[in-house]
Amino acid sequence: MSEAIFGIHGAALEVRSQRMGVLASNIANAATPGYKARDIDFAAALDDRLTRGGDGATVDMFSGADAHTLYRAPTMPTLDGNTVELNREQLAFAENALAYSATLSFVQGKVNTLTRALQGE
């Protein structure tokens, strides 16, 4: 149902939200020895969600992106085994937040269109 109304944007919003959590985890663990930074391959996760959620089956919220969570390759290895590079994570976080905002405005636009059609003004 929601797939028919929002198209790609509903799924994209969920993946964006999840990616935000993963990036925040990286920032939180910037000083944890041995922590490996992770990131979601957005395109692959979105593809997966769309193909699996298309037949109306309920998709587990996190199963789709879990398979597409990859470890980040560090620019330079550190002695304590931590691969978080704060500048990179912050940049990815900002980019992701912006994309979330964009997707959200698409969803809102869709809702506005529908509301206007229902009201028949």
């Binding site: 959590g21 993963v22 985890s25 990286n26 944890t32 922590y35 996190f62 992106a65 879990d66």
Partner: peptide, 8 residues
């Protein structure tokens, strides 16, 4: 594991 978040 449930939410995929990692805290410290």
């Amino acid at each position: 594991r449930a939410s995929g978040l990692a805290s410290v």
